[in-house]
Simulated assay, not measured.
Amino acid sequence: MVEKKVSENSSLEISNLRRRWKIIFLQLISTSALLALMNRMIKLYGSCSDTFVESYDGSNYWCPSYEHTRGLIWFEEQTGSLILPDAIHGLDQTGNMSLVAPLVICAILTAIWIYTLTAKESISKNIRRIVVGGMLAWGLLPFVVSWLVAISNFGIHLPWGPTNELNHMDNLWEPLLFVIELVFLGIVFAPVLSGLMGIWGLSRKLLTWTVGYYLTVIGIHAILTFEGITESVDLGLSPLPAQIGEATLLGG
């Protein structure tokens, strides 16, 4: 049998789909919708309640709202410093401008991820090895080196000794701070990153994860701001008007 050749305009291969202007146009629309959804989520779920803010009387505070700068400022006050510069966090900006730098980072990570998908297998493996190896070296190498040096000077001992010379756990503090910073950033930008990867990488799984994440945030916020919950534990979240309207009060 003679195999029929499928033209590039009719082919459903991912490499061909990425070059079609219709697909690119839909990707641009989807990206705009994703950013609009993120902005809407921040406006609805990104503020703490007025009574919670007043109780802190102008000092730094944090509540589990859908916003990243407040949590990072509070975390910096607790630890004394942040690993990433303020320009990357967006802490040197106010309003929507605080979202620009993290969004640029998400776009860069998406571009790198798509490049690894389309590049040769050897190049993709090398990129993964460099990223994983670099993170492991930065996170564990100072700890291991300081421990080995101390063993050569003071003999074999556990890394959490009673004195400063025998305690090397402080070398793991910086990687831990970095992970916590990523958590604060990820609250807002993890679904954006996965959404961008899903849109431009044509991945249905990542898009499904993004939608599921936003639905989870909405559900958790609704539970934590329910009147029965706030009477016992008030986390400072600002309830939506629909949750405390007449229908809710009357049991409708």
Rank of each mutant, 00 (worst) to 15 (best):
R20Q: 01
S49N: 08
N126H: 08
S194L: 04
W113L: 11
V104C: 06
I151R: 03
G139K: 04
W209M: 08
M97W: 14
K120L: 08
L172Q: 00
S7G: 09
W21F: 10
W200T: 00
L177E: 13
S7V: 07
A242G: 05
P64G: 04
S81P: 13
N60F: 03
H68C: 09
V179A: 06
I127M: 01
S65L: 06
G201W: 06
L44N: 13
S146G: 12
K120M: 13
L26P: 00
E67H: 07
E181F: 01
V131Y: 14
Y213I: 04
E3P: 00
N164W: 11
W62Y: 09
T163R: 07
V100Y: 12
G228V: 10
L224W: 07
V217R: 12
I220C: 14
S232G: 05
K22F: 08
L91D: 02
W138F: 15
L117E: 03
L158K: 11
I14E: 06
L37C: 15
L177R: 15
S47T: 12
A107M: 01
T116E: 01
E165D: 14
S81N: 15
I151V: 14
T163P: 04
L91R: 01
M169D: 12
N9T: 03
E77Y: 08
M135D: 05
I88G: 08
G201K: 03
Y66L: 08
G90Q: 01
S152A: 11
V104W: 06
N126G: 02
G134D: 09
N167P: 08
L82W: 08
E227Y: 14
L166E: 01
W62I: 00
F52K: 03
L109R: 04
A87Y: 14
G228C: 08
E174L: 09
I151Y: 02
P239M: 08
E174I: 13
D92L: 03
V149Y: 13
P239E: 02
T230S: 04
L35C: 14
D92P: 02
P191S: 01
L109G: 05
T116S: 07
G212T: 03
K5V: 06
E227H: 15
W147K: 04
I218A: 12
P142R: 12
A190S: 12
V179W: 05
L72F: 05
V188E: 11
L109I: 04
K205G: 02
I108A: 06
V183D: 02
L35T: 09
T51Q: 10
W209G: 07
T79H: 09
D57L: 08
G58E: 09
R204S: 03
T79I: 11
G212W: 07
K4D: 14
G245L: 06
M197V: 01
E246S: 15
I29C: 13
I23L: 09
I180L: 04
L235K: 06
I244W: 03
I24R: 02
P159S: 05
M1T: 12
L91C: 03
A101T: 09
L140I: 10
R19L: 00
P162T: 14
M41Y: 13
